[in-house]
Amino acid sequence: MADENQLRDARDAGDRLLASHPSEDPFAAAFKATRMPMLITDPRQDDNPIIFANRAFTELTGYSQNELVGRNCRLLQGPDTDKAAIAKIRDAISEERDVSVGILNYRKDGNTFWNALFVSPVRNQEGAVIYFFASQLDFTNIKSKESELAKARRVAEEEASRRTAELIEALRVKTELAHEVDHRVKNNLLTIASIIRLQMRMNTNPTVEHTLKSILDRVEALSAAQRKLLNDARVGQFDVADFGRDLVTDIVGSLQRPDIVLTTDLHSVTVSASKASALALIVSELVGDAVRRGLSDGGGEIHLEIRRLNGHCLMRVVDTVTPVEADGEQQAFSRAILDASIRQLRAKIEREVDGHRTEVCVTLPVGD
């Protein structure tokens, strides 16, 4: 608390300041009338006391002119005022430089307000600091809006986290369910294949055995596709090229013919898992057709190409074989399976035969 001598000195300094600016002086008139809270302190006196405050400042803080003059501005500070902000102001005044800071201040009645404070030194002609001029702006409403926005952001983030956790859990359940379904389908296909093999071993009719082998080939193609789905971490996705590589290698490898030359040009093309079975049958029928037309008898060349092309999946099988007489019934059955799979996928098929060379292209839309 300032003593009487300090109060008298502060009032005298204020009076001298006002006396140097008569009432008709625009500076004095603007300082008193402006709605922006302002005050002036005198650093040449002990504790840099307030020597003048305008009406806007007294209305903002609740202190009268008499209660303010002679006291340091720290009377506006309170228990929740940021110590770092206080230190920033104190250092700027000590170093006689400008400072601007947002600080929590207290009114006379104890209520708080957020103060956008700007302090600047006033120098005489010799450059010595004779006053400090301070302006204030109550930005409590803005700070409240920021607080509301921060709270809303926290609520939104918490809700997003909760929803994300729910989605992750739902995806986990879906993944487990999809793998369980794939696992059961794969097991069922393996069981069917085992039954067919058993029937083949017990059969003595070459025609029946040939028919059973034809069915087994298709079942194994479907089983291979299902195995890919089960082992792929990307649930619901099927890589056509990855599957095609394995299937054509298995088919050609099972023939055990060193005179068969297999080449591939494969690029990853991912499609929905719902297309897997139909695609597996298409690749199986295209390669199987080359086998039936002579690849398994006289050898030859077979080339498999799979790539993405203009929003489509291109599957291209080229073979060069010495033709043999193929079973007409088997060829018709294969063509029926191939046509049904093509229709299911809304794909297009083009076939070109030039002597011993046959090229078949299948294209189906896969989007981006």
Rank of each mutant, 00 (worst) to 15 (best):
G62Q: 02
S120K: 13
V119H: 03
Q77K: 08
Q77R: 04
S100H: 13
V69N: 10
Q136M: 12
S135G: 14
I86W: 03
D91I: 10
S64F: 12
I130G: 09
Q65E: 15
S135K: 09
S94F: 11
A116P: 04
F132N: 07
A85S: 09
F132M: 01
E96C: 10
Y131L: 13
F118H: 15
Q125L: 13
L104K: 01
E96R: 15
F133V: 09
I89Y: 02
K108D: 03
I93T: 04
V129G: 05
R90F: 01
A84C: 06
Q65W: 10
A134C: 08
D82A: 12
R90I: 15
G70F: 08
C73T: 01
N66S: 14
E95V: 04
Q77M: 05
S94L: 13
E96A: 14
N105E: 02
G110S: 09
E95F: 01
A116M: 15
E95D: 15
S94E: 12
A116K: 06
T61W: 01
Y131P: 11
A87Y: 07
G127R: 08
N124C: 09
A84P: 03
A84G: 10
L117A: 06
C73W: 02
E96M: 14
V119I: 15
S64I: 04
I93W: 13
N72T: 00
K83H: 12
N72P: 00
Q136E: 13
